[in-house]
Amino acid sequence: MQVINMRQMKRGQTGTIKRIGANGQMGCRIRDMGLVPGTRITIQGRAPLKDPVALRLMGFTLTLRNSEADFILVEVDS
């Protein structure tokens, strides 16, 4: 099992969130949307300019800037 930064995840890759290293407004926004340790996510794709990133979790699609994805560590399925 490999733990990587969400920014490095490839399209179609799935994993489980390990840690959110942000607090304050950014941390709050990320967690409000269900990105908490234990949540399963799949990378759905990236915008034409490679940023932001779109991911699926809990049955909906969420988009994040790469600078926000940097705070999220994911244990990717092998």
Binding site: Q25, P52, A54, F60, T61, L62, T63, R65, E68
Partner: peptide, 12 residues
């Protein structure tokens, strides 16, 4: 000031 987090839902 800091940019507001983008974190946005893509609704169906």
């Amino acid at each position: 000031g800091e940019s507001t987090p983008f974190v946005m839902e893509l609704p169906p």
